[in-house]
């Protein structure tokens, strides 16, 4: 052990402890990303093994730009990401404001809010699929009662299906946004509120000029995390709609999955996956640049 003493030994030990973790992450996260990029430059079709894997440069990306299906999926993805994150962060903020007050049983409420977050997404998807069923779903009964004739096939109509998937996502993950905002709220010193109240500021003014600016970093973090997670939506679509009806819920991650694993276009599918990766990366970088400094201040608070 003595040989390990001193700064040099310490550094060796540090790398030794870090190495297994880094090895796993490099081998199964960073290398696959690189490998995806490599695959996306080749033409690989699983049902045509005789084709081999010729290098085709940027052909797959050129197709990605010109293919109407891909553009449609990109649009659907953006609509899903936009609608679900906005709803989740605003609902989450309201929930956080309610949870920030002290009342009896607050711990229980906080746990209850966490339940949708903890439920497996597949279970939540089947649950909503059952509730939204066109003949015996609870939703139809709540909306139309016994008037069976006007029951809606929510998941089978292109107009409703994306809304239904968004609803399921909002239900499941608003709590996560709420918790992050709540953590931000709890860093605000209480005496600031009392001082503001003494100055005669009403509840709205206190929220607008005190709470909002101070909780903004936490809001931004919630937005970043929800946005990046929303880009990765898959389970809900797989179970609830399979990308249908008429591709109305065919988000990019599902589109890429179908291309790669159902139609067997490994190269083109990899190009789709690289596109998803770049979108997520871009969002995270933009947000982090916008809020990075405030974030650091938030951390020290």
């Amino acid at each position: 052990m003595a040989a390990l003493a001193g700064p040099r030994g310490e550094r060796l030990l540090a790398w030794g402890l870090l190495l297994p973790c880094l090895a796993v992450v490099c081998a199964f996260a960073f290398w696959p990303i690189v490998y995806s990029v490599v695959l996306s430059l080749h033409r690989i079709v699983l049902s045509l093994p005789g084709l081999g894997a010729p290098f085709v440069g940027l052909e797959n990306y050129a197709r990605l730009l010109s293919e109407p299906g891909a553009r449609h999926s990109a649009g659907i993805t953006l609509a899903f990401v936009g609608a679900s994150t906005l709803l989740e962060v605003s609902l989450g903020t309201l929930m956080a404001l309610a949870l920030d007050k002290s009342f009896r049983g607050r711990g229980l409420v906080r746990a209850a809010v966490l339940v949708p977050w903890a439920i497996p997404t597949v279970v939540a998807s089947q649950m909503w699929r059952f509730i939204l069923n066109d003949r015996y779903g609870l939703m139809n009964w709540l909306v139309f009662g016994g008037d069976v004739g006007s029951y809606q096939a929510w998941l089978a109509s292109p107009g409703w299906a994306l809304g239904a998937v968004i609803l399921a996502d909002v239900w499941k993950t608003s709590a996560f946004a709420a918790l992050i905002v709540l953590a931000g709220l709890q860093t605000i010193p209480r005496d600031l509120y009392e001082a503001a109240a003494l100055d005669g500021a009403g509840p709205w003014q206190r929220f607008r000029h005190l709470t909002l600016p101070l909780v903004l970093p936490a809001l931004a973090v919630a937005l970043v995390f929800r946005t990046m997670d929303a880009f990765r939506v898959f389970d809900l679509v797989y179970v609830m709609t399979q990308g249908g009806p008429a591709n109305a819920t065919n988000v990019l991650q599902f589109y890429g999955y179908k291309k790669m694993f159902a139609e067997g276009f490994m190269g083109y599918g990899s190009a789709v996956s690289v596109l998803v990766f770049v979108m997520v990366l871009a969002v995270s970088l933009i947000y982090l640049k916008l809020v990075g400094r405030r974030l650091l201040r938030g951390e020290t608070a």
Binding site: F28, I33, L252, G256, M260, S273, V280, S284
Partner: peptide
């Protein structure tokens, strides 16, 4: 932190092949 943001689809093909 970046790794935790990777979309599954970007890892799926290569990991499956490996």
């Amino acid at each position: 932190l970046l790794v935790s943001m990777f979309p599954q689809i970007s890892l799926a093909g290569p990991i499956w092949r490996m």
